[in-house]
């Protein structure tokens, strides 16, 4: 066993290096398999495992036709655009509403404050399945008639993301120095001004953290999109789920389709990983 030291002076742990390498490899292999398969021809993918292509990259038949097939043929392209249209407002709107509420819960005193906040905490755990039949009635043809449109899904994601967003932002805002808000008030700022000019800029780290998580949740959601969007507005995740059901003809599009649905979350992940970590460590439980 080596007792060599690392640069920072801690002892090098061979056991940790070996175990972590194995775990990291185990966690990565399935995704690599998907990525490699998505670039193989249908016949290749059906006749040999993806790892053979990886070990003999020059004798394999690489192709990008799966991607063009999935994008246009399986219509994942329009699903992709729909996902963007669904995800951006469904991320921004709940944050706007929740930030106001979090401000009030942090810096204002009013009757029933604790009751309202405990309510928020309680509904964080309530399964969103409770909402479906009542909301199908309210938003559907028997009610407002907007079920199937983007706005229905925005409203639902706003409602479902709200408790957690209020809770996370309030936790963060209560770490801000109260004296700043107090002195703004003495200087004659209204709550509305204090909120926009002081508290929102100072809360940007928490807002970014929650936004990252909410965006991923909305993008990756299957249940709400499947129930509340019509087929021309539906998201890339629902399109992928429909592809998963196909056998035989078109099955080779699945791997490319899966990767198309993962590109945006992956970019978000690599660009905003530290925000994700911060969001998760701020005590996030989603109902």
């Amino acid at each position: 066993m080596s007792r060599a030291l690392m640069k920072d002076g801690r002892p090098r742990s061979t056991f940790s290096i070996v175990t972590m390498s194995i775990l990291a490899l185990l966690w990565t292999i399935p995704t690599i398999g998907l990525l490699v398969t998505s670039f193989r021809t249908r016949d290749d993918a059906a006749s040999s495992g993806w790892w053979t292509a990886l070990f003999n990259p020059f004798s394999a038949n690489w192709t990008t036709s799966n991607y063009s097939g999935a994008w246009t043929g399986a219509d994942l392209g329009s699903g992709f655009i729909n996902s963007i249209v669904v995800a951006i407002p469904a991320t921004v709107i709940p944050i706007m509403f929740a930030a106001f509420a979090a401000y009030a819960f942090t810096f204002m005193e009013f009757p029933f404050k604790e009751f309202f906040f405990l309510l928020i905490i309680a509904v964080m755990v309530v399964p969103i399945q409770v909402a479906f039949q009542p909301m199908l009635n309210i938003l559907g043809p028997r009610g407002l008639g907007i079920s199937g449109q983007y706005i229905a899904v925005w409203l639902l994601h706003t409602g479902f993301g709200m408790p957690l967003c209020i809770y996370t932002l309030r936790n963060y805002m209560s770490t801000l120095p109260r004296s700043i808000v107090e002195s703004a008030k003495i200087d004659g700022c209204s709550h509305y001004q204090t909120f926009w000019r002081l508290v929102v800029p100072m809360s940007i780290p928490a807002i970014a953290a929650f936004a990252t998580l909410q965006f991923l949740w909305v993008w990756n959601d299957l249940l709400i999109a499947k129930l509340f969007l019509n087929s021309s507005n539906t998201t890339v995740i629902v399109k992928l789920q429909q592809l998963l059901g196909t056998q035989g003809q078109g099955a080779e599009l699945l791997t490319a389709g899966a990767f198309i649905s993962m590109i945006v979350p992956m970019l978000v992940f690599f660009a905003l990983q530290r925000f994700m970590v911060r969001g998760l460590t701020s005590g996030a439980v989603k109902g």
Binding site: T28, T31, T37, L216, T255, A258, F269
Partner: peptide, 23 residues
């Protein structure tokens, strides 16, 4: 190593099922 193990957090359940369908 943490990034690699954390990465699946960004993947949808549907995407993950597609990935493991290959396995």
């Amino acid at each position: 190593s943490k990034s690699l193990i954390f990465l699946p957090m960004a993947i949808s359940f549907v995407g993950a099922t597609a990935i493991w369908g290959l396995v």
